[in-house]
Amino acid sequence: MVEVLKGNLAQLSLLDILRMLSSSGRSGRLDVRQGSKTGEIYLRRGNVVHAVTGVQMGEKGVYTLMGWMEGEFSFTPDVEAPEQSIETATEQLMLEASRQAAQWGDIKDVVSSTDAIFNISPSGSTNTVSLKPIEWQVLTQINGEKSVADIAEALDLQEFEVAKIVYSLTTAGLLHEVSDVQRTFKEIVEESFFEVLADNFTEVMGPIGPVIIEDEIKLMGEARDAFPQAKAAELVERVSLEIVDSRKRAEFQKKMVLVLKGS
């Protein structure tokens, strides 16, 4: 088997490649790769008969792959499709793909890629917003960690569909994109947090309080000067368990919850 066609999706879109292969009546497998994600589209005498990427197959798979704006592709001729998951006429498939490609142009201004991650906007929308059931489903998946592609996979939807919904929810003011900085920056607890923690804990436990805090930090495998913000509540919870009197414990927790919420 010889690869006859190989290239970059940034230079030649998947839609253009498929148009070319289809119009020349080619048979074979088109492999697509974007980072760690891969996909395959099979053609038989110019007709798209099967596609698969991740858990998505058939038409859904084709439309998801069409949304990949970057990555590599290679076409291997005369490879038989393992099955037929697409019955729709290829012309119709291309037409829908063209329509989606045109919409991607607008969507990309807000949803940079299907790897983009969104979170609920704290300010929300100033207007009344009504949501369709599918929009509500997507909204419940938004958590500042899942990408558009992850949500599509979880809900078994096309990435394009999810991107379109995320686009409309973002323009309605309900969501915002989580920046790379927010995603990769591991927040460290400020020294003032430890001072407040030690003060409040010492008030209940006496002079042994700071010693217990230091011990718990070590038991958590962390260092005071690089203590992650994500573990601050766990530290408070752990030290509070040392307070035997449940009332005093609750009072300490109440004070520290206010500190944690403010941090």
């Binding site: 500042g144 509540a233 766990e234 408070v236 919870e237 509070s240 609750a250 109440k254 520290m256 919850v257």
Partner: peptide, 19 residues
């Protein structure tokens, strides 16, 4: 909750409310 919830913070808050 969503999987990303801080269970410790949740537990602390619940305890404050229950008290």
């Amino acid at each position: 909750c969503t999987p990303s919830v801080d269970i410790s913070l949740l537990r602390l808050n619940i305890n404050v409310v229950l008290t």
